[in-house]
Amino acid sequence: MPPKKQLSRRQLNSPFANLIEAMVEAKSKEDEMTGFTPLWEVFVQPKGALAHKHCGSVHAADAEQALQAARDVYARREEVRSIWVVPSAQIIASEPEAAGMLFDPASDKIYRHPSFYDIPDDIENM
């Protein structure tokens, strides 16, 4: 059992203190090295795009540093308008085993696609 990690004062004062503590606790059990720097998922909104898109992840001690790391790693070349970072531990994902139940029933319902309609020319983003 590795020793319990001490959070820095700055991490403890952050509004995400409980979350960071939980992530560090979980992570330090499996990885001594990155225990202090939890994982964050990065979402980038390119210029001219409507939605943020997941583009990868960064390690960072807290939210502010995660945002800077995301900027340095994922906004180097692209024209970016905005970045979101989300604690990876906060992502709630569907179970891979449930994929059949969740997604397969959609595959034979072709009428759910809008391909049987004429789309007016002035409708964008379909």
Binding site: T37, H59, A60, A69, D72, R76
Partner: peptide, 10 residues
């Protein structure tokens, strides 16, 4: 770390 490597290179 990789993140800081890129930050410093930038």
């Amino acid at each position: 770390q990789l993140e800081e490597d890129l930050a410093l290179s930038n």
